[in-house]
Design a protein around this nucleic acid. Sequence first.
DNA 1: AATGAATGAGTGTTCATTCAT
DNA 2: TATGAATGAACACTCATTCAT
Lengths: 207, 207, 207, 207
Amino acid sequence: MADLVANSGTDATVDKTPRTERGRRTLRAILDAAAIEFGTRGFHDTSIVAITQRAGVALGSFYTYFDSKEALFQALVRDMSTQVGVVGATAIADAKDILDGERAVLAAFTAFAREHRELYRIIDEAEFVDPASYRAHYESAATRIGARLGDGVQRGELRADVGEIEAWAIMGMNVFLGLRYGVMTDDADLKAVADAANALLRRGLTR
Amino acid sequence: MADLVANSGTDATVDKTPRTERGRRTLRAILDAAAIEFGTRGFHDTSIVAITQRAGVALGSFYTYFDSKEALFQALVRDMSTQVGVVGATAIADAKDILDGERAVLAAFTAFAREHRELYRIIDEAEFVDPASYRAHYESAATRIGARLGDGVQRGELRADVGEIEAWAIMGMNVFLGLRYGVMTDDADLKAVADAANALLRRGLTR
Amino acid sequence: MADLVANSGTDATVDKTPRTERGRRTLRAILDAAAIEFGTRGFHDTSIVAITQRAGVALGSFYTYFDSKEALFQALVRDMSTQVGVVGATAIADAKDILDGERAVLAAFTAFAREHRELYRIIDEAEFVDPASYRAHYESAATRIGARLGDGVQRGELRADVGEIEAWAIMGMNVFLGLRYGVMTDDADLKAVADAANALLRRGLTR
Amino acid sequence: MADLVANSGTDATVDKTPRTERGRRTLRAILDAAAIEFGTRGFHDTSIVAITQRAGVALGSFYTYFDSKEALFQALVRDMSTQVGVVGATAIADAKDILDGERAVLAAFTAFAREHRELYRIIDEAEFVDPASYRAHYESAATRIGARLGDGVQRGELRADVGEIEAWAIMGMNVFLGLRYGVMTDDADLKAVADAANALLRRGLTR
DNA sequence: AATGAATGAGTGTTCATTCAT
DNA sequence: TATGAATGAACACTCATTCAT
């Protein structure tokens, strides 16, 4: 969420980046409060007053930092999307091979989902509130997976015909395993889940 | 959608089932209009007037058949959920073996998604509007897949350790392949998609 | 309520008097149901459906007998008003003198109020729903009392200066004692109440 | 009405008391407009828009100060109830004896009713809109009268058996005399009314 | 006479956004 | 920057009344 505090990226007319330390604290408070509210009540059942009250700031202050409710939501979605990418990249860092890397990504993702239950609600709701971000999220995730698979093919670790379809299939697996074992349950053995899924992929993508 | 016209099942105080032929036509018009509106604008941006206007009936008639906007949405979600199940069951009917059946299911599902683009929007939004139906939808779908996998194991067609995790993984694959190649694109070769995914599963779930 | 079944009195264009026995039964069912609903929920919180449902007749049948919700209410108010007059006249029948008569009226009225708790609610609400009937009710009640007082003066039983003011004062006493001891409480000794009030009047209106 | 502007007393979740001078003006405007609208059209025929339009404020501003239409009505009822008590207490201040005090109360009350024709409509309608306030109003008024009678008994100014029944009887007299000579007529000699009623009480409650 | 589906005007309430202080 | 009162468009829902059967 750090980069959000620095600059949301897409401010059109006016720069809403805080200039003072106090402003930075206010912005962060709003963002944190929003993540909780949107994650539990959903976009439409969350009001700006609820966010500002939880953040402990005045209602009007909201518009010092965001142009609209949608703008805040978009900022949150993009931030979460980025975080998911970072989590994957970090997990994959010291993987021995492609398939080991995918296991690490899944394990890290399910764990992340468990820690951030608001993740699914916020990204899923983007389909309705901010479709562009929603598509961008999944397309970039699929692209990242696809790139890794491409590397694997090149290195001869995977079948030669593995491509985009498999990338989307893997993403779907990950998302639903994260939902089932990260979000819907508290006590699942996430390592076992990652192992089982990896067994499927290891056989499925090789030879 | 046929069973909706008959009886939604959960009428609490008053029976809202139409008794006359005219009533049945009105109900069907509302349901069809609602599927379109909810599917394109989403639940919150769809108004009851918009639905009744599209259906060509009076605003008040809506409440002759549904207790609330949420009730209508719920009816729609449950109906779509049922339809998805039916589509899968039909597709699987004359499959030679388990894996062939899964291929047929995926092919049928992606084709269905392409024909009913409102499907994803409506079921996804249920996560926010009617969480119980949302969970029920995915849990029952996973259960059905799991049951089929169990059969496969029993018949020796699949690895012995295949179970719930693989069921959710397959469901995730299917959902995202349906999204990518059924909904997001118009011209994808759905047979090729089903074949590729099946190649992954066939290797992944056997031995 | 008997005369209501015969003829409501003020039907303008169409005669809504039932011609068949079945019609008379329906009308009576509606009237009885309405008295209960209006008496417990009040005019605005009572719906025509509620009345017809309680009466066990179809919604549309209501308009076979009444022009509007207001018309039904008016019929009820006028009927209750008449009943109150009858109760008083009956009670006074074998009174020895004026003051004894007033005691009998109060005793009968409080007892009637206890038996017909809907009385106050319906007549009071007429102030808002049908002001003309409301005024008529109280004005005619005051006139009746005034006439009796006039007789008393003539016969030398009461002070010569007793008149309209005293009539309204007595009516107010009766109404509030009926409210307090007839409606608000179940176990009051209504005879004691009538005696106490009469002691006040007997001293107050003589010499 | 002064205390309403300060604090209505029963703010549950959020404090709706205005903090700025402008806010106080807005609240007062709404209260004044509501008294007129409720008093002339009654609760159900008065809309929030009508109130805010008359008050010259935006529709939404209503909800800055009141939780609902009922809440506003309740505030008004309680305020009027308080005012009636104050009027009585003021009138009684320099009375020579109990009975003289009661005459002063009645005279003041009928005059007040004439000045505030909305009084009856608002308090009477509370029977349907806010029954608790309605009962509280009459019970506390009766209690005040009862207390004064108790004093009179103690001082030997009244018969020893005068009590609650007489208190309710007097209240009824006052209410109906206020209705008849304060509200229904414009030109009644209120002093003469108070004198006549007092003659009745003076004789009726002594010896 | 009876039925109940259809109608649509009417209204309380919410809430994102603006703006004066 | 911060504050919170003010604004008004938008919308779900109710229900008296009509009318075809």
